[in-house]
Design a binder for these strands. Sequence first.
DNA 1: CATGAATGAGAGTTCATTCAT
DNA 2: GATGAATGAACTCTCATTCAT
Lengths: 203, 203, 203, 203
Amino acid sequence: MGITQRKEREKEGMRQLILQAALGLFRDRGYDAVSIRNIAEAIEYSPATIYLYYKDKSEIFFALQYEAAALKRDHLLPVAAIENPWERLVEFGRRYVDFGFKHPDLYDLLFITRAPMEYVENQECWALGMATHSFFSETVQACVDQRYFKSTDTETIAYTLWCHAHGLVSLFVRERMRMYPEEKRQDLAQKSFSMIIKMAEHL
Amino acid sequence: MGITQRKEREKEGMRQLILQAALGLFRDRGYDAVSIRNIAEAIEYSPATIYLYYKDKSEIFFALQYEAAALKRDHLLPVAAIENPWERLVEFGRRYVDFGFKHPDLYDLLFITRAPMEYVENQECWALGMATHSFFSETVQACVDQRYFKSTDTETIAYTLWCHAHGLVSLFVRERMRMYPEEKRQDLAQKSFSMIIKMAEHL
Amino acid sequence: MGITQRKEREKEGMRQLILQAALGLFRDRGYDAVSIRNIAEAIEYSPATIYLYYKDKSEIFFALQYEAAALKRDHLLPVAAIENPWERLVEFGRRYVDFGFKHPDLYDLLFITRAPMEYVENQECWALGMATHSFFSETVQACVDQRYFKSTDTETIAYTLWCHAHGLVSLFVRERMRMYPEEKRQDLAQKSFSMIIKMAEHL
Amino acid sequence: MGITQRKEREKEGMRQLILQAALGLFRDRGYDAVSIRNIAEAIEYSPATIYLYYKDKSEIFFALQYEAAALKRDHLLPVAAIENPWERLVEFGRRYVDFGFKHPDLYDLLFITRAPMEYVENQECWALGMATHSFFSETVQACVDQRYFKSTDTETIAYTLWCHAHGLVSLFVRERMRMYPEEKRQDLAQKSFSMIIKMAEHL
DNA sequence: CATGAATGAGAGTTCATTCAT
DNA sequence: GATGAATGAACTCTCATTCAT
């Protein structure tokens, strides 16, 4: 019994090892530019070994995306406890941005990386993402219902807020803030987040 | 002298030919999927010929990035003629988004693609981008000067607007709007743009 | 002693299990396309287990060849009971062809496949084949002795009949009868067999 | 003009070089066991070079089969000049066998090697083979028409003769005459050919 | 100026085989 | 006795790049 468990743990450890190596490479070079061989070298195993744990490259990618989606959900989930919808919305946004800044590679994987996203295999991940998105939409809807905005166009409101947050994070993740000095970037993002919240109050 | 000039013109013509072909392929298949051979076939020259005009693939990439920056500048430049800063700002935004939707590949190249941007060769491109960015900042500054906003934090205002616009375009470019039906995406973007303008009026 | 015997029997059983699985796969996909993994999967053991019973893939191949030779002998053996040499010869031929059509893969293995036949390991197989061949020659000799043919060149007669039978089977086995419609092939072979028998009567 | 011709000749030379190397390897190891790399090594070029002359392995195979079919036709064609159908038939058979003994590798390729034969690309080769086969059938038919045989079953007669000839050659080509001493094999084949001719006279 | 020919390097992938457990 | 894990070597094929012509 103990043996089976240990083996299982070791197997899971190996899968994690592969995933972490892949994550780093994907982040640095992009999906297309990473080869199974690269991953193998990174973990100092033979390429064939990778295939014992993942069918092919896209399966690794899917696994990573799923992990990222799960982590993101866990990062955002606590806000569900906040009763007031407006406060919930603000906190959701804050955490969304926070997740992006803390895990730029995972955020990249979820919202920026160009990769095979069509396959059925990725549906669990997709479902996870959709659930989070729905939660966001519902929160906006609750704000609309409770007259926090003049506008009642829930969809556009939600989308607009998302655009800003995504722009904020992705300019950072893909290093397009070079015109701002390094030490000012986080601060600027902070200020911009506050500003969009203020703006939203007048929606 | 005339001969030298003609030769130069012809050489430049060939470089343009290559770039345009590369651009088209790039648009259709993505950077990584385009090979020198593809480009050569497209212009009906041999692969070796490409090397007479560009040192290697990355040089083509840099040239393309410059091209993209120039095209973007040309796309945005006309707004300089608009005297009223607020109107200029709005029109700038509209054209920025418009550029992204019309040339997703170029936008990608400029603001999303992770690529060697450090190299000296790309500094002209960088300069071009900076100039455009400065023009944008100055326009926001003009709005601030003329009291179009309550806030006077020019930098944050500019950055916030950029975040929204960039988020808007990049969610589209990298196909992260799948939860919205295809035919609604452009419309939604439109609405969101209008919304952010409205919101900005209360800044 | 009993234990040793039982163990031996079990070991032999496993070897048979492997061989039969290999044979089936071989029949379906051809020798080259069958991997040790395939065989292992077929018998629901791990690939490594195969190596406990056979040194390597070629040893399985040799064992199969021996198996094929034994099966062929068993298929032909019953004709030894036929007293009349001419009838014995005819029935031998019929069964030879029959074997080829029923087990194209085994026939292929024995008479067509180019394979390391020199190795010592395969000598048993070779001996088996020789025995069958001798039986055939002797039958022809008996026919000659009893004046079934005008010709007395036993060797040439035997060889000629073999050539025809082998040609018949091997054109079928290696799919060189495509100019004849599928459903006619067996029929044609039948007729040709009858014809060569008739021709032999005038030898 | 001369340059173009020379280049063409060199290109053709390279194609021949590849074909001859491939032929030897296919003969020795079988189609499946030969890799593009093997061929490349044999001619001391890089694997990539092969791809400049042939799309893939099967194309090499097709080219070889076509060459073999053409050579065989050229070998057999002269008999068309023989007016008497029986003499024509005998000479056809003699040359068929002769071709097999002179070019065992080509014969192997045409009538024994297991390989992709389905593709459209091989139709020219197939057509060539069919033409030769038709010529053979027609010759048999002519013999039937002129009462050289008692039997009138042209198809079976033709097939039976082919079986013998193919058996004769293929036992030799695939080295299944080991029970006969080396120096006797050709002689035996000779005798067997004569015997089948004799037998055919009584058909 | 343009290119045909060639290649080393590398992609994803599969396989026979080994060995510690 | 059986196997899970691992790997080196091989596969087909494509690519960026070079160089003699």
